[in-house]
Design a protein around this nucleic acid. Sequence first.
DNA 1: TCGATATTGTAAGTATACTGTCAATCTACC
DNA 2: GGTAGATTGACAGTATACTTACAATATCGA
Lengths: 178, 178
Amino acid sequence: MPSKSQPITMDAVYTAPGYLFRRMQQIAVSIFVEECSAFDLTPVQYASLVAIHTHPGIDATRLSAVIAFDRSTLGNVIERLESKALIERKPSREDKRVKLLYLSKSGAAVLRDIMPSVERAQLRMLQPLKPADRKTLLTLLTQLVDLNNEASRVPLRAEDALEHLGKQGEGALGTGVS
Amino acid sequence: MPSKSQPITMDAVYTAPGYLFRRMQQIAVSIFVEECSAFDLTPVQYASLVAIHTHPGIDATRLSAVIAFDRSTLGNVIERLESKALIERKPSREDKRVKLLYLSKSGAAVLRDIMPSVERAQLRMLQPLKPADRKTLLTLLTQLVDLNNEASRVPLRAEDALEHLGKQGEGALGTGVS
DNA sequence: TCGATATTGTAAGTATACTGTCAATCTACC
DNA sequence: GGTAGATTGACAGTATACTTACAATATCGA
């Protein structure tokens, strides 16, 4: 039967999945930034570096599909990474609209060096749970994100978003797509 | 044994809990905004309305503790709610620094009317999972958020943050703390 | 009571995150 | 081959989210 307008309490907030997701995200960012403070990289900037490392010569639009971040937002992120000299932007010869993204030497170095801190952060987020529960949570969360993919404004389009890149082969991409 | 600098792939991103939390939060907001589009309320604005409804005469600082949102951020949120005439701000007589928050008539009406849409949104977020899995995920997430409370920049200080309010008894708070 | 300390709201600055729009450019169809 | 429609990066605008700083005010200790 339909819930007949029960009184509104804080439980309406505290038990709502949306609220829990928000809280958890805030906690996760907080832990990430703390662990990685020595590198002055945000989670989004880190993810961008990984994606550019994995797909050298990717453009901003495809990058946004690969990490499921908004294209507009990514513009600023790229700007900051460039101003920190962690990446380089080169105009494409085939398409004058496109700017290709590459890791700089220092970008590659930062990415290599930050990995242990990132792993430590990821561990800390789940630390309070029992190991078995961590695994369960991750499994369910992965499923849920995947099944809800289309519901998000920027659905993840992992490797298949990069088909165009393979063609012209801007150098030695080791198309690491299994 | 320590992982000997394995090659960096996109899996370093896709399987990281932090990334999954971010994705899920984006999806959750997207669904919330879609379901509640008729009311032009964001998740944060909704949570603020609930908290002000539950604790009439609360001030901004305590509100931030009750919903675990940043105090600075909340300033803007309150401003927007006020400019939409959903809440009212009255200076406290006991403390000239403080501004007390109350729902306006139209704020109370909006809160009442939006509840079904909010519930629909919360259901949709978990919809793709089997009912048993939904419960498991919520349980684990609740635990994790609670146990990580102090790790976040703005730890939740639910009802106990409101002790001061009870004293002067700014009206009929039904201290619904079990 | 007076001075150090703390709290409150506010503001400025940075960084996501999303909505639009726009000009330049590319593609495809006719 | 020339134009309609799509794509690309950029920009403007709104809304969290956090940091630091600040003035006004409160409070507490000596």
